[in-house]
Simulated assay, not measured.
Amino acid sequence: MLSLLSYFKDDEEGTGYRQHGPITRIYYYIVIIGAGGTGGYAIQRITKMMSAFSNVNSFLLIADPDTVEEKNLLRQPFIQQDIGLKKADVLAKRYGSTYGLKIGSYSESYIESVESLEKLFSLTDYRHETGQFIQKVLIGAVDNDYTRNVMNDFFNKTDDLIYIDAGIEGVFVPSQDTTIEKWTSEERLDHLESGYSGQVVVGLKKHGKIALPPINGVYPIDANDVIPPSHNCGVEPYQPQRMIANEMAAFQISTILNELFSENIILIHYADFNARTGNCRPVYVDETMVGV
């Protein structure tokens, strides 16, 4: 178990954390990148927890420029009336009004640089209070390694950050040019058994030092995926995702946020899961923490 408040017990390293007095509470400034399958269901759960933990100060900003399409209704938390609207704007308005929360949205463009992430985390001035530390929490719910590389670079550049990344296996599809009737029996089996596994990794950086390695330190990011998501507009994904895998990834994210909101602690460094069997194998922070 890793307690965030334990980092504020003293200021021997000159971090400046106690310049306004002892830190006794944490304000969670959460930015989630991606409001599709995994991100959409995670937003459902996070906003409900933000309402339930009314004694915890928190803010959520949703970033995704994608527009709701009819195909999204099959495995993402949208309805017919949402078609044609921006995903981030829809979910921010829906769950903000449902739970009486102020939820921000950014739907102008994809997050393709560290500078754009820095801007999303810049709205902190009026949130400062004596005895309160603003904890940045970045949640990645994307399906491309280009954006993961950007978020990993942001983690490396930022002195203090919790970076939660969720990824799931795509469904195996032999070829876009063939129909399922033409697949071999082996291809059919691979298709039926794929798309259920995934992982959620929690990276933590405090005092400018890595305490928990992020996604790239656990499952190295594919450097070959170098095409920005803005260049893929209109291109159908070769590997679709399963709704049950999206929901299980979102659930794993929500368990991490639950511990942060309830006790200001991190229990799990990363977890591998299979949505078909319901199995989850967590690796606890005590096994992997590398320093303070």
Score class of each variant (00 low, 15 high):
Phe53Glu: 05
Asn55Phe: 04
Asn55Asp: 14
Asn55Gln: 10
Asn55Thr: 00
Val56Gly: 02
Ser58Ile: 03
Ser58Trp: 04
Leu61Arg: 08
Leu61Val: 10
Ile62Leu: 14
Pro65Trp: 03
Asp66Ala: 03
Thr67Leu: 10
Glu70Thr: 15
Leu74Tyr: 10
Arg75Lys: 11
Pro77His: 03
Phe78His: 05
Phe78Val: 12
Asp82Phe: 02
Ile83Gln: 10
Ile83His: 07
Gly84Asp: 14
Lys86Met: 07
Asp89Ile: 01
Leu91His: 02
Ala92Cys: 12
Lys93Arg: 15
Tyr99Lys: 05
Gly100Met: 06
Leu101Gln: 12
Gly104Thr: 01
Ser105Thr: 06
Tyr106Asp: 11
Tyr106Cys: 05
Tyr106His: 13
Tyr110Ile: 08
Ile111Tyr: 07
Ser113Lys: 09
Ser113Thr: 14
Glu115Trp: 00
Ser116Lys: 07
Ser116Thr: 06
Leu117Ser: 09
Glu118Met: 07
Ser122Cys: 13
Ser122Val: 11
Asp125Met: 02
Tyr126Ala: 06
His128Thr: 01
His128Trp: 06
Glu129Val: 02
Thr130Pro: 01
Gly131Gln: 09
Phe133Glu: 03
Lys136Phe: 09
Leu138Val: 02
Leu138Met: 10
Ile139Thr: 10
Gly140Asn: 09
Val142Thr: 11
Val142Pro: 04
Asp145Val: 00
